[in-house]
């Protein structure tokens, strides 16, 4: 699979990462190599192999519907870059 600059730009945008032109070029070639390496897997016949959903051989880990301890608003907001009253605040998201 060919990884061009456009694809890297697109993926960078999805991850909200800003990349310089030079970085784009470097990452394009690196990602190209990585995917080429992964592509080796397609040499295997996986016709009868189920896709892996979880790496551990365990199922059905559930908890009872019992209320636990929540944080206080003050505690919850302790790491917030900005807050107002009991709210987290962010730059306005609609006009």
């Amino acid at each position: 699979m060919a990884i061009d600059k456009k694809t890297v730009e697109y993926v960078a945008h999805l991850a909200r990462i800003e990349l310089q032109d030079k970085e784009l070029e470097k990452l394009s070639s690196q990602l190209h190599d990585i995917l080429g390496f992964i592509d080796k897997l397609s040499e295997l016949d996986t016709k009868d192999v189920l896709p892996t959903s979880h790496i551990l051989p365990i199922n059905n880990v559930l908890r009872n519907d019992q209320p636990g301890q929540s944080l206080t608003p003050a505690k919850a907001l302790e790491n917030a870059p900005s807050s107002e009253g009991n709210f987290f605040t962010v730059p306005k998201v609609i006009e």
């Binding site: 919850a76 900005s82 107002e84 009253g85 009991n86 709210f87 987290f88 605040t89 962010v90 730059p91 306005k92 998201v93 609609i94």
Partner: peptide, 10 residues
């Protein structure tokens, strides 16, 4: 949404 910020309640 307020004038300059949006308040978030989780």
């Amino acid at each position: 949404h307020k004038d300059s910020v949006s308040l978030v309640d989780f």
